[in-house]
Design a protein around this nucleic acid. Sequence first.
DNA 1: ATTGAGATCAAGAATTATTCTAAAAAAGGA
DNA 2: TCCTTTTTTAGAATAATTCTTGATCTCAAT
Lengths: 147, 147
Amino acid sequence: MEHQLTESAMAEMLGGQRMTKQRRLVFDVVKELAPTHPTASTVYERAKLLMPSISLATVYNVLETLTEAGIITQVNIDREASRFCPNLHPHAHFFCDQCDSVFDVDLRERADAAEPWNLPNGSLIEQMNVAMRGICPECREKSDATN
Amino acid sequence: MEHQLTESAMAEMLGGQRMTKQRRLVFDVVKELAPTHPTASTVYERAKLLMPSISLATVYNVLETLTEAGIITQVNIDREASRFCPNLHPHAHFFCDQCDSVFDVDLRERADAAEPWNLPNGSLIEQMNVAMRGICPECREKSDATN
DNA sequence: ATTGAGATCAAGAATTATTCTAAAAAAGGA
DNA sequence: TCCTTTTTTAGAATAATTCTTGATCTCAAT
């Protein structure tokens, strides 16, 4: 968890923007639900329990604000709903086709995600997005047991 | 172009499914527009010129059929419209933020795209999706000249 | 050739995630 | 407090895609 921000660090990163109740709440919910990589509506459902007046539009707004401020990461796979992630490490995501779980995959020590790719000279990578689909260890174990 | 399919190879891959005029046409259009990585509606616009009766729904259907048959690849970046690509090499995509072009990035010889990633033991990768955003060599050159 | 079954296509409606709009509420500073 | 700016809210709008339904086409058996 060391790479999840504290609230004060978050306030910093917001720059001039205000640290509002809604922003704090959405951030907390994203952290709370981090292992599930929640979508905007999942965040909304959970946030509503804690602040019934919050609106879906606000959740979307805040998620965008936090993403732009570099406080959370937006994760996309195929054309599914975006998911959000408080992990600021450079990392990839693994999506299990069987149990629909998502988990973070860290970059190896000193590894370079671009290394295997034959980029044309002079390209400048600003962002890299790596997603894997497949079967997670838990599901493989289960299906092995069945066979 | 060696790794783009001929029509007969395509017919094979369709399995039981029929090689129809629409499927042939959509496939040809995707090949023709390959360097631009067209979206469904771009494919539709071009296809309509050659077969005015074709419908957008058919273009979507065919693109899905071809993708499922492994004849073309569906390429997603963030939540933008899907693009389609007849390149069947293992490859990544680079999206230029400045000129909005997309190009293929090949895997280096003998390289393994998963190598930099610290996958938990026992995961089975079925598909890997790598997208990079940044500035392409052409745009960098241009902006260098301006500065 | 004819016919029947199943595959495919066309057109438009429906869906889903997301963004936009406009007005109300909240926050900070003078 | 009052004014200005930011933020929030609710609902409308949008964009890409999928779904539905009836029409059309294909193939294979007659």
